[in-house]
Computed example of a mutant assay.
Amino acid sequence: MRRPIAVASGHTRLLTAGVLLASQSLLLTLSAVPATAGDSTTPVRGSAYMGRGVLAHEGVQGRPVETRASQTEGVDVSSHQGNVAWSTLWKSGVKWAYVKATEGTSYRNPYFAQQYGGSYDTGMIRGAYHFATPDTSGGAAQADYFVSHGGAWSKDGKTLPGVLDIEYNPYGATCYGKTKTQMVTWIRNFLDRYQARTGREAAVYTSTNWWTQCTGNYSGFGASNPLWVARYASSVGTLPAGWGFHTMWQYTSTGKTVGDHNKFNGSLDRVKALAKG
Rank of each mutant, 00 (worst) to 15 (best):
Q182L: 03
V258C: 01
Y168W: 12
K91Y: 03
V229G: 04
G74D: 09
M1N: 13
T212F: 00
A37E: 15
V99E: 05
V147L: 02
G157L: 02
P4T: 12
A6K: 09
G117R: 04
E66F: 09
E167A: 02
F112E: 15
R231S: 11
L239E: 04
K100L: 01
Y111F: 15
W211F: 12
Y171C: 00
H246V: 10
Q142A: 07
K155T: 06
R45D: 14
T29S: 12
P110H: 10
W153G: 01
K100R: 00
D260N: 07
I125R: 03
T36P: 04
I166S: 09
T42S: 13
L164Y: 01
L89P: 08
L160F: 05
N169E: 13
A173F: 00
L27D: 09
D165I: 04
R3Q: 06
G139C: 13
Q213I: 06
Y129T: 07
A241K: 01
D269C: 01
C175S: 08
R13C: 02
T238C: 00
M248W: 15
P64N: 04
Y176A: 03
R13Y: 05
A101Q: 07
G172S: 07
D269W: 02
G255D: 09
K100M: 02
S40M: 08
G139P: 13
K263M: 06
G59D: 09
A48S: 13
D192A: 10
Q250S: 06
L227T: 13
E73P: 01
A35L: 08
C175D: 10
T133V: 11
K256Q: 06
M248H: 03
E103M: 10
A128K: 05
A128P: 08
G255S: 09
T159M: 13
S219K: 12
A97D: 12
L28W: 14
T88K: 08
G117E: 12
T136K: 14
S70Y: 08
V204W: 15
L21W: 10
G172M: 02
M1W: 10
V77P: 02
W249K: 00
N83A: 06
Y218A: 03
K180P: 00
L15M: 14
T185S: 14
I5A: 13
A173N: 10
Q250N: 05
C214M: 03
W90G: 09
S106L: 09
S267E: 11
G255R: 00
S79I: 05
G74K: 11
T122M: 04
G266I: 11
